[in-house]
């Protein structure tokens, strides 16, 4: 038996097609894997930093430890309003310990740090004799800047 008849009889075309496909599959897979080998080794070498990055993706973001937790910061307008009312009720000049104590008894959260922040913002200013005053001009300017 010869010619196409022999090829068909022995299933030659199918064997040739499957054969060359398997050769290509083997070499293409191998080339794909080895083309990524140096990258895989780079990741392995830097695995600690990659693990840290991966863990960070799955954990809640924490603020850096060096910075204080200033939850009131976003709400300085509200803090300023509260202390404006408080100081108007207690009178000026005032001492800082007294102001803080009064604020705590009235239920204002984080009184100490809020007062500290109001001083930094220039809303509470010293009167040069050991007491403090409420800076009304700075307070009104702050309220004008408040986003609507």
């Amino acid at each position: 038996m010869t010619g196409l008849e022999a090829i068909f009889y022995h299933n030659g075309f199918a064997m040739a097609a499957v054969g060359i496909t398997i050769v290509f599959t083997a070499l293409v897979s191998l080339s794909l894997i080895i083309s990524q080998l140096h990258r895989a080794l780079f990741v392995w070498d830097n695995r600690r930093s990659y693990i840290k990055k991966a863990l960070r993706l799955f954990s809640e973001p924490k603020p850096p430890e060096s910075e204080p937790v200033v939850k009131y910061f976003d709400n300085i307008y509200e803090s300023a309003r509260q202390f404006n009312l408080l100081i108007r009720a207690t009178g000026e000049p005032f001492s800082l310990p007294e102001l803080i104590r009064t604020a705590e008894t009235r239920g204002i959260a984080h009184a100490h740090s809020t007062v500290s922040h109001l001083i930094a913002a220039g809303l509470i200013v010293g009167d040069g004799r050991g007491y403090f005053r409420w800076n009304r001009e700075a307070y009104e300017q702050l309220l004008r800047q408040e986003p609507k």
Binding site: T2, G3, L4, A6, I7, H10, G12, F13, M15, A16, A17, G19, I20, V23, F24, A26, L27, V28, L30, S31
Partner: peptide
């Protein structure tokens, strides 16, 4: 590496040729 795979086509074409002969 693909060039090495392509050249093996000769094996399978000759296989068909030998069957045909």
């Amino acid at each position: 590496m693909l060039l090495g795979a392509a050249a093996q086509t000769g094996i399978f074409i000759t296989f068909l040729g030998a069957l045909a002969l």
